[in-house]
Design a protein around this nucleic acid. Structure first.
Lengths: 146, 146
DNA sequence: CCGTTTTCTCCCAAAATTTCCCAAATTTTC
DNA sequence: GAAAATTTGGGAAATTTTGGGAGAAAACGG
């Protein structure tokens, strides 16, 4: 399962090295093909290709009626690209995404169960860390078992 | 499967180069004949010819019950043309479509399972990227491994 | 805490892909 | 049938992608 985060850097040609534990998990469970995309352009979604295909099927089945879902498909198609993890466990991030999500300097790569999310570290912190969660926010959490 | 996008340019004589991964997939699965058309004139639909023929059959069936579809058939017939992918993996976009869909400067070519959609990049972004998806929009996504 | 091993980053060069350009061939127009 | 316009073909430059070496940094083991 993909959990936790790592700091990574992007090289001169637009690739990132996927940390060993993430890449091992992905390759052994799903193979080395990825679908790299974004929904809002501010972060990069890195899916194992089979996971994405599965997800896509679900979305498309409901997309018939909702224009919003069609827009979602347009956008994830626009940002998207099939890529593979190379021998050194690197992946190329396509240039539209590099620009849009400001991929330069320090980046944060976060595991999200079956896929990864990549952020410009500064951007991520501005959105999530600077204004910490309030008691109110936390009140929306479901009850844990007790 | 045709997924993801690529930026392409149109040459002086109205052709685009279909990126290697797309063209390889198309040719090996469907051969090198295409049907190039449009439904609304603002983008260009690029179908492998066998895929289009199949689709057409379905639409014609439904047109018996829904005469509105006749208009769809008229339009896609009007814009349409059979073309083939040349040795250098280029295709000519007929001039009605070049004008109508403003094919000049940077273009975006987006994979959609079994066909491609070509847009003027600016136009596409105005329609899809300028106003990004909101939290509310995303809440319409089906739940799943996300 | 120090040396060893593994992982990651940085860099360069080779390979592949895409774009640009020109000219020949074909089709259309008058 | 000649001129104009469009389509087709291919060489070569420009750009992007790929591959791998070597140093730097981090993790590991004792």
């Amino acid at each position: 399962m993909l959990l936790g985060s790592a700091l990574v850097k992007i090289d001169g040609t637009g690739r990132i090295k996927i940390p060993g534990d993430f890449s091992k998990y992905i390759i052994s469970n799903y193979g080395n093909e990825l679908y790299i995309t974004s929904d809002r352009g501010d972060s990069v979604l890195i899916y194992p290709l089979p996971v994405w295909k599965n997800w896509l099927k679900k979305v498309q089945q409901s997309a018939k009626n909702y224009p919003v879902l069609r827009k979602y498909l347009n956008i994830t198609g626009y940002y998207g690209k099939i890529t593979s993890i190379d021998k050194k466990e690197r992946v190329l991030i396509q240039s539209i995404l590099r620009e849009r999500a400001k991929l330069e300097g320090e980046l944060v790569l976060i595991g999200n169960i079956d896929h990864l999310v990549l952020w410009n570290k500064e951007v991520f912190e501005k959105l999530n860390i600077e204004k910490p969660l309030t008691d109110d926010d936390l009140s929306f959490l479901p009850r844990g078992e007790d």
